[in-house]
């Protein structure tokens, strides 16, 4: 297996020119798939026999919650890559990803709280998954605050990478510890090993929404990384050429 692509990823210039045609199509595909999933889920999927129509919140809640976790996983991996290989793209990735993850965690929390009201009769329960998403939100905010308050770029890169890696190592411990606090939450909707309990007309739209949101975030991420690359590499001649000759 060739590792050339991995080393190429270390070059902001290579990434910029490679990703340029990808951002918009991926973003549009994501929007479309998300829209299909949401409309399907909201209009066509049958109501849940226990929860009635309030279960339709699942079509935004579950994708967003999945992304909140995946984003942190990606942050931790990027931090590790930076600490080991000093790859220039990794801190750019972290900088671009952290706000996305924070927004996802916040939406997951709020939509979960709103869903909890008709289902459990209360906005908030100290259950394992709610608490761990809340902690996840705090971790994201910590990374963002740290990056904003460090002026030195080299130090900010290192700091963000270290705190991401430490967070990733700690996340299983945090998860396990909050599981020990009593749990009220229903089991995970999607697992890789088991067939979902829901009928297909209920989980198919969810699948569309999940894939859509992943692509939506990927598109946004590429745009944010491109902006960050331009900001950091403004001294190099290719950026000058890129900015002055090509339009937006």
């Amino acid at each position: 297996m060739s590792w050339a692509w991995f080393h190429k990823l270390g070059s902001p210039k290579w990434f910029f020119s490679w990703s340029k045609p990808w951002a918009l199509p991926v973003f549009c595909f994501g929007c479309l798939s998300l829209l299909i999933g949401l409309v399907w889920g909201l209009v066509f999927a049958p109501a849940d026999y226990q929860q009635g129509n309030s279960f339709r919140i699942i079509y935004i809640h579950v994708p967003v919650a999945m992304l909140a976790q995946s984003c942190y996983l990606a942050l931790g991996v990027a931090g590790f890559v930076f600490l080991v290989w000093q790859m220039k793209m990794a801190p750019i990735f972290i900088k671009a990803m952290a706000p996305i993850g924070a927004v996802m965690a916040l939406i997951a929390l709020v939509s979960g709280a709103i869903w909890g009201k008709p289902t459990w009769g209360t906005w908030w329960v100290w259950d394992a998954r709610l608490t761990s998403v809340l902690v996840l939100f705090f971790l994201y905010m910590g990374i963002i605050a740290l990056q904003n308050s460090l002026d030195d770029q080299v130090l900010a890169n290192k700091a963000a990478a270290v705190i991401s890696v430490v967070g990733l190592i700690n996340l299983p411990v945090i998860k396990y510890s909050v599981v020990l606090l009593e749990t009220l939450h229903q089991g995970p909707t999607f697992t890789l090993t088991k067939k979902p309990d829901m009928p297909p007309e209920m989980w198919l739209p969810l699948l569309f929404a999940v894939i859509g949101l992943y692509c939506f975030v990927a598109g946004l991420l590429i745009w944010r990384m491109q902006s960050e690359i331009l900001k950091r590499e403004y001294r190099s001649s290719w950026v000058k050429q890129e900015v002055t000759e090509h339009g937006l």
Binding site: S54, I57, I60, I107, V110, S111, I114
Partner: peptide, 10 residues
């Protein structure tokens, strides 16, 4: 109220 506020916030 619940469904639309959740979707609205999202």
């Amino acid at each position: 109220v619940y469904v639309w506020s959740a979707y609205g916030f999202s």
